[in-house]
Computed example of a mutant assay.
Amino acid sequence: MTQPASKPPRKSAVSRHVDPSQRDLFQLDSPLIGEIRGERSLMAFPFFALAKSAWMKPVSYHQGPVSIEVRPSANGVATIYDKEIVLYIASLMAAKIEAGEQVGQDFRFTAHDLFAVTGSNQSARSYKRLSDALERLQGTQIKTNIEAGGEGEEGFFSWLSEARLHYSKTRNGEKRLKAVQVRLCDWLYRAILRDRQVLDYASTYFQLGPIERRIYEVARASGPDVPGQEFCVDLETFRLQIGYQNPLSNFRTALKQVTGTGAIPDYDVELVEGEAPAETTRGRGRKAAPVNVIITRRAAEPDEVQEQESESPESGEEGACEEAVRSS
């Protein structure tokens, strides 16, 4: 895949104010300056469970040359909401690389800034969820044949090889969280540092539900970048790529609730039902008609039109939908 063109970081609409009580910390990587970024493979493939609560079953994906196995810890598989922390760390790392700074695998940041970026409130419940998420990210075991930074790995790894919460204590003995310290796994560190396949996320991503998040990520990683162009894939292949664990009929129902709503940032989603195949065997019912998912890039905002026009390839997209389905 070609490396996406780099763009200057846009100012985020999220407040970057740092709590005065945390200003005495040194060597912090927060606050995040710029936009949320994600590594392309983590966008394209289902590494996280589509759940709000603990998901205790293994997650697997085996399609074409790509193989992924995810095993739960005692607290379950890392979820799509736990992934917010991984995206935040990846964004800190990408911002440092873009600024020409040296970057290692250890990151130290404030929960205050993480919550500001992801839109979480500052309640005690949010801090408990943060602690649980860090445990799942450290405990979940991943095995994949996707290479990162020109290297492959055999065996399992975790998203975070270390995760710590640093507290101070008030005079009355109350704990006050000062910083979060993590060590990013070798696999993802190499992918971001060497491959540079890092894409920006829409600012409304954290407001989406689990399925909508995955639809957006797959569209962003695999779909068209030019307004009006389409990406087409059969329903079952799309279900697997999204990481939806329930039957295909349930996925179709869930997808119908998304189509036509404009809920997916930058993309429109449509379900198209083809003709049912002719009956070939006496006494057997007709096979179900094939269903395809068509994802179309929406028209760009006015300030982006000029940039995209300069990058637009020549026309010639007839038959692209059918070809995408055959090659999926």
Rank of each mutant, 00 (worst) to 15 (best):
N145I: 05
A148E: 12
A148N: 10
A148Y: 06
G149D: 09
G150I: 03
E151Y: 13
G152F: 06
E153I: 11
E153Y: 14
G155C: 07
G155N: 06
F156G: 02
F157G: 03
S158H: 12
S161E: 15
S161C: 06
R164T: 05
R164I: 03
L165A: 04
L165Y: 05
S168K: 07
S168M: 08
S168D: 13
S168V: 08
K169F: 12
T170I: 04
R171M: 11
R171I: 08
N172F: 12
N172C: 02
G173C: 02
K175I: 00
R176K: 13
K178Q: 15
Q181I: 10
Q181F: 12
R183N: 10
L184E: 08
L184H: 10
C185L: 01
D186G: 06
W187Y: 13
L188M: 14
R190M: 08
R190Q: 13
A191V: 05
A191M: 04
I192S: 09
Q197M: 14
V198P: 02
L199P: 00
D200Y: 12
D200T: 15
Y201S: 08
Y201N: 10
A202G: 05
S203C: 02
F206H: 15
Q207W: 10
Q207L: 14
L208S: 04
G209D: 14
G209S: 09
P210Q: 03
I211K: 02
I211M: 09
I211E: 07
E212G: 02
R213A: 00
R214L: 02
R214V: 02
Y216I: 03
Y216C: 01
E217I: 02
E217A: 13
A221N: 04
S222R: 13
G223F: 06
G223N: 01
P224N: 02
D225I: 01
V226E: 10
P227E: 10
